[in-house]
């Protein structure tokens, strides 16, 4: 019985891994690719480690698998956040059909300081217009 459960979990994990592979190749944008591959492959690792736990229910195997799952679930979002931040700072373009960029003109790319309102010196004519649309009571 545990072998059947293990095999099914392995198949589900491989499905998520395959989705991550397809997404990382087919998505049009770096940030979409990153979102797709990070979430999907993390879930795939979780399912595969669960399959290992069901196949060999010893304490040593289960503790190692749990350690791997906890480590991957902790570090994958941090790594994705760091790559995304670095990519946005270094000016990787968004997809041409993306509708909103909420960090536009709010990130000082020299001092790496994030403002909750638009920066005071406008770098493009769009920032003035965006600043006028802002709620004036937003705290700094």
């Amino acid at each position: 019985m545990s072998e059947i459960i293990s095999t099914v979990l392995m198949g589900v994990g491989a499905l998520f891994m395959g989705l991550a592979g397809i997404g990382i190749l087919r998505m049009p944008d770096l940030f979409m690719r990153m979102s797709c591959s990070t979430k999907s492959s993390t879930l795939g690792v979780g399912f595969l480690m669960l399959a290992v736990c069901f196949r060999f229910p010893h304490l040593s195997i289960i503790s190692r698998a749990a350690a791997i799952v906890v480590f991957v679930f902790l570090t994958a979002p941090i790594a994705a956040h760091m790559i995304g931040r670095a990519a946005y700072i270094s000016g990787v373009p968004l997809w041409s059909k993306s509708v909103i960029d909420q960090l536009c003109n709010r990130y000082d790319r020299c001092t790496l300081h994030l403002e909750s309102y638009a920066l005071s010196e406008p770098t493009s004519p769009a920032s003035e217009e965006e600043a006028s649309h802002q709620d004036p009571a937003v705290p700094g």
Binding site: I24, T38, V52, V72, A76, A79, A87
Partner: peptide, 24 residues
């Protein structure tokens, strides 16, 4: 370059999956 870094991280995560299957 960030595209390549994301791809490299995905490859290593899939390598963890391959190791899990090999353990089974």
């Amino acid at each position: 370059l960030p595209d390549r870094v994301v791809a490299l991280e995905a490859i290593s995560t899939m390598g963890i999956g391959v190791i899990a299957v090999y353990t089974v």
